[in-house]
C-alpha cells in the first residue's frame, strides 16, 4: 500500500490547546482512488483533511506526499501545495476578481504560465465545470453552486495530483448541490484522486472506493461503501449512520 500511495498519513495527531482533535490517524490514498470521510461534526474529519496540505500543522505524526515527508525542514510547502488541490465549504473565491482571474492567479504566479496561456487553461477548466460562459463574472454575480464550481475549476486548472474536498456542498441550497456533485462525479471518472469530507451519503455510495468513518479523532472503521453502509461493524458507525439516514 504505502509504496504506491500518493498521499499517506502516519500516526497523525493534532491538538488545539488542550483539546486533542486527532489522536493518531493512519491512512493512505492510491492514485485515482476516491476516499470518502464521514463522521459526526467535531470528529476531526476536516482537521484531518486540512493536515494533508498543512493548512493545519499537525502536532505529531507525518504526512507523506509521493513518499516525501512534507513536514521535514527544507521541504517547500508551497511547491507541494501546487500538487494538492483543495475545495472549501465556503468556496473562498477572491471577490475582487472575475472567475477567470480567480483561476489564472495561481497559474501565473505559482506556475509562471504567461497570461494568454493561463487564460486558455482557465477557460478549459471552466468548460470542465460547465461555466465557460461565466468567465467574466465576479463571485457576487454567481450562485453558491456556480461559485463552488468555479472554485473547483480554480483547483483543477493547477492539474493537481490529488484533490481535497472539505464539505463542498454543505453551504449550498439543496437544489444547487446536484451541479457540484455532477462535476465531482466527472472528475472522478476522469481519474482524479480525491479525498472527500462530506455528508452526501448517496454520493459516497455511488462514487467512493473506500469510506472512512471518523469519530473522536480516530478512524473507527473503513471499508468499501457497500459494506460500511449496509453492514457496519462498529457500534458507533451504526449509530452515526442511523442518525444521518433519518433525514
Amino acid at each position: 500500500m504505502s509504496n504506491s500511495a500518493l498521499l499517506e498519513v502516519i500516526n497523525l495527531r493534532k491538538s488545539f490547546g488542550v483539546l486533542e482533535v486527532l489522536k493518531g490517524v493512519n491512512f493512505a490514498i492510491s492514485p485515482q482512488e476516491l476516499v470518502f470521510i464521514i463522521g459526526p461534526s467535531g470528529s476531526g474529519k476536516s482537521t484531518m483533511l486540512r493536515c494533508c496540505n498543512f493548512l493545519e500543522e499537525p502536532t505529531g505524526g507525518s504526512v507523506l506526499f509521493k513518499g516525501q515527508e512534507i513536514s521535514k525542514p527544507g521541504v517547500d510547502i508551497d511547491t507541494i501545495r501546487q500538487h494538492i488541490g483543495m475545495v472549501f465549504q465556503s468556496f473562498n473565491l477572491y471577490p475582487h476578481m472575475t472567475a477567470l482571474q480567480n483561476i489564472t492567479l495561481a497559474l501565473r504566479k505559482v506556475k509562471k504560465i504567461p497570461t494568454p496561456e493561463a487564460q486558455d487553461r482557465a477557460i478549459h477548466a471552466l468548460e470542465q465545470v460547465g461555466l465557460a460562459e461565466k468567465y467574466a463574472s465576479h463571485p457576487n454575480q454567481l450562485s453558491g453552486g456556480q461559485q463552488q464550481r468555479v472554485a473547483i475549476a480554480r483547483s483543477i486548472a493547477m492539474e493537481p495530483d490529488v484533490m481535497l474536498f472539505d464539505e463542498p456542498t454543505s453551504a449550498l441550497d439543496p437544489e444547487l448541490v446536484g451541479g457540484v456533485l455532477n462535476v465531482m462525479h466527472k472528475l472522478r471518472n476522469d481519474g482524479m484522486t480525491m479525498i472527500v469530507v462530506s455528508h452526501e451519503m448517496r454520493f459516497a455510495q455511488e462514487a467512493a472506493d473506500r469510506v472512512l468513518f471518523v469519530d473522536e479523532g480516530l478512524i473507527v472503521e473503513q471499508n468499501v461503501p457497500s459494506e460500511i453502509f449496509n453492514n457496519p461493524q462498529n457500534q458507533r458507525t451504526r449509530e452515526f449512520l442511523s442518525r444521518v439516514s433519518d433525514h
Binding site: 508551497d78 501546487q82 483543495m86 477572491y94 492567479l105 495561481a106
Partner: peptide, 23 residues
C-alpha cells in the same frame, strides 16, 4: 479579510507575500 481567502490562495501554492499582495 476572511481566513478562507488566505487558505484558498495558500492551498494553490501562493506564498505568504504573494497572497498578501494579490489577494
Amino acid at each position: 479579510v476572511h481566513r478562507g481567502q488566505w487558505e484558498a490562495a495558500r492551498s494553490t501554492g501562493l506564498n505568504f507575500f504573494e497572497t498578501l499582495i494579490n489577494v
